[in-house]
Design a protein around this nucleic acid. Structure first.
Lengths: 231, 231
DNA sequence: TTTTGTGAAGTCCTTCACAGCA
DNA sequence: TGCTGTGAAGGACTTCACAAAA
């Protein structure tokens, strides 16, 4: 029991939850290990060393072993890791045994692309609804779904048991919709809106901004070409 | 060979920032400051304190001031920062004075969505081409562009002076296309393919994986709900 | 007086190196 | 013997706290 905590004492009356915090950087890399493991599994590989898995994931082997040590010791010294066994344990540690129902808010170019993207289902996320406020768009088919009216947001989120929301909205309306989604009880949000969203502490918000990514690339590119440049 | 080394001091006197290495985490935040500053500019705000800009960017004021210190000192003690002036200097530090021509490879759902997304142009990136290998897709209109044949990749990249490429491809073909793009001389790549890409050291690669983002959210969500759970 | 810019302290993450086990 | 698991060392980033400047 409580295989997730490497911490020695299973305290009786502890105010803090037992499971230890995994460093954010390690959590992000876990998803890489999972992807690499599933890829190996598809190739029929049964065992893998930390060296090989690290290379397949694009990290150093010491980083890999340290990361795995946060979730437990599932390898065999002198041998390596059993691919399927390790994959299951990482998935469990990440909470992917849970059923995740995802709703997309915004049926513009990006929202539709996300709804049609096959990569979610295969990794344990069910897209169960997509919303828009535009009467010209409401009711349209997008993949297997039909666009719901944003006015029905709360009702549909509840009916579909949605527990994750993706915001694919223009910056101008993102905060207002975000507030409604949170009021409806959602605590996990992935936003593609290029704007800072204010959320209460119990809500988990992640942001993806494509223009930001290009800007970061620009910095490195400019640096490689012209080392030293003022305005 | 590029002079990327973080050489401590220039041999001559150094009043200027002198192109020092900026920590990656700071570079990422610079894009937030830039976004916030441009937003303030649009509102007609002329001056801003580190406290206010930090709040608008979602960081602490000490982090903001430390980050700004990497690119120079553009504030006035006791007063704050002039919005436009600071915005220009950060843009220059990020290399956004350069003209960036972006090509998108893959005209599926995501590729098309990216091509039609207006947020790139407004932040200094010109989308100049979009490619696909499917004869049914080649020639179709996407936004202001027409889908080019992947077979013409090298020729079109050169003709359009592309210096950044976005890969919006399935995992299976991403590496092959990536290799071609690099052979064509591109050194800045943003990949949306859910696979580890192998690139030579002089190439700058950034990755965005939407399923990964959801998995990270899942970890935090599961943790908030059920503290301690085995497989 | 106000607010920036920055050494120094503190915290978090990565890498090292080897003990521990199969 | 070979490879994992992990304390300890080393670095990188963040926060603190205050001197410097307007």
């Amino acid at each position: 029991m409580t295989a997730l905590e490497p911490s020695p004492e299973a305290t009786t009356e502890d105010n803090e939850p037992a499971a230890k915090q995994i460093p954010p950087a390690a959590v992000a890399r876990m998803t890489l290990y999972l992807r690499a493991l599933n890829s190996l599994l598809a190739e029929g590989v049964e065992r893998v060393s930390s060296e090989a898995l690290a290379e397949a994931s694009g990290v150093s082997s010491s980083t890999l072993r340290k990361d795995l040590s946060y979730v437990g010791s599932y390898g065999t010294r002198g041998v390596g890791y059993e691919v399927q066994y390790l994959s299951r344990h990482i998935a469990a540690a990440l909470g992917l045994t849970h059923d995740w129902k995802v709703a997309i808010v915004g049926a513009g170019n990006l929202g539709k692309a996300l709804a049609r993207y096959g990569g979610f289902e295969s990794r344990g996320f069910d897209v169960v609804a997509i919303f828009d406020a535009d009467p010209m768009v409401i009711g349209n088919e997008v993949g297997w779904l039909r666009v719901s009216d944003s006015a029905e947001l709360e009702r549909v989120l509840e009916r579909t048991h949605t527990n994750m929301v993706v915001l694919a909205l223009p910056a101008t309306v993102a905060q207002a919709v975000c507030d409604r989604v949170i009021a409806a009880g959602i605590r996990s949000i992935l936003s593609f809106a290029p704007v800072l969203l204010q959320v209460p502490p119990h809500v988990n918000l992640r942001k993806v901004d494509m223009a930001t990514e290009l800007q970061i690339l620009a910095y490195h590119a400019q640096r490689a070409q012209t080392p030293g440049q003022a305005i």
